[in-house]
Design a protein around this nucleic acid. Sequence first.
RNA 1: GGCAGGUUGCCCGAGUGGCCAAUGGGAGCGGACUGUAAAUCCGUCGGCUUAGCCUUCGAAGGUUCGAAUCCUUCACCUGCCA
Length: 428
Amino acid sequence: MTDGQTDLLDDLLWRGLIAHSTDLGALREALDAGPVTFYVGFDPTAPSLHHGHLVQVLTARRLQRAGHRPIALVGGSTGLIGDPKPNAERVLNPPEVVAGWVEGIRAQIEPFLGFEGENAAVMVNNLDWTAPMSAIDFLRDVGQHFRVNKMITKDAVAARLHSEQGISYTEFSYQLLQGLDFLELHRRYGCTLQFGGSDQWGNLTAGLDLIHRAEGASVHAFATPLLTKADGTKFGKTEGGALWLDPGLTSPYAFYQFWVNTDDRDVVTFLKVLSSRSREEIESLAAAVETRPAAREAQRALADELTELLHGAQERDRVVAASQALFGRGSLAELDAATLAASLAELPRVTVALGGTAPTVVELLAETGLSPSRSAARRAVAEGGAYLNNERVTDEQATVGEQDLLAGRWMVLRRGKRQLAAVEAVGG
RNA sequence: GGCAGGUUGCCCGAGUGGCCAAUGGGAGCGGACUGUAAAUCCGUCGGCUUAGCCUUCGAAGGUUCGAAUCCUUCACCUGCCA
């Protein structure tokens, strides 16, 4: 236990991590009174967690570091139902698929929390208490405490009720399940605080109400803000799709690059929410954004920290070095072979034999995935957005050969300003 | 169960027999300007062995020289009635 629990709440507020909450005064008292057992849940709706979950995982980490006891819940049951999204019904995933995702997500959360010591984290799966429950028990013991009148006023549900598509009973019931989770964790572990994304606020309060009715106890909840971008586009999109935490889905290099490319207007907000740096450090970085924006110090700090946290210091060093080499001022031909090889190792790569028919640049763009199809690759060349070893390629028929090799075996292919891939020549 | 309306490219949304690979907007992508940023402007935005060809407008079948557009059946969605 560190001292100054008041500081924790003030810190969360300063960082903008509390978008909604129950009585903050009461929460402050509880946090001051000693270690609080809290929970945050993650539904397995994909094989990996993504950028959006980072806020939750890191907030749990903050609370634990301040001496509180985390319960990380993976939604083996809620993942089978799906919480209502405002615009569309979810596709139900097969149970065995969801079960596989539960394991993957559990493993992704573990490195962020400590499972030893006085306030060791606990990992739970809500399927453990939901699966054994009969439909009758569920309706009598849980359903009895919920008023439909109130259920239909929750934002996501209300939006769907007014949509053409409507809402299935399955998704409508979701809030009961999440409410039950909080109740169950309250009974089993004395859990008195739940937090989640602001889109979860309705589900968070469902749990509060249920505990109040079933146990007569008052517990706490807060919602973290949804991260948005100043330009209005969706946060968390990379060239390859979502920003996944799984290195197999989003490489450490791509993960690092995502944060380096953060908009100036957003970077301080993101630092507050995601970084464990102190208020002083963040304010100094904010000043740097004002005075020397081109240096991108804040972006680099954010990218460095998150990449190290997720992928380790070694990997962080590798992607930082690769980024410097590939985006540096010097020409690629001047890089020494070792640096070049190490940098290119971070990029998507294809191998090619130069012996027979010379491959065209268009073919290589498509093969490396820089362009989704040959048509798109031709377009890239036509638009002047294709580069071989940093030289623009203007001929759609252009081929590559021995003369293009760097350090005897590499070629660097680029589409646009920052999409890179390595081509390795073999055999011959 | 009955009746009515709907299902178009990543999203929204035009198109009601040939001029449709399909108007427009958004997102995306590329270029210029920059700082691997934003804003702005310009271009692009199904695929391929690209002056051409192939596959798309919920699914299958049919009418026609010719269909996203007409007909039949099916599936799904929405509303009203029962």
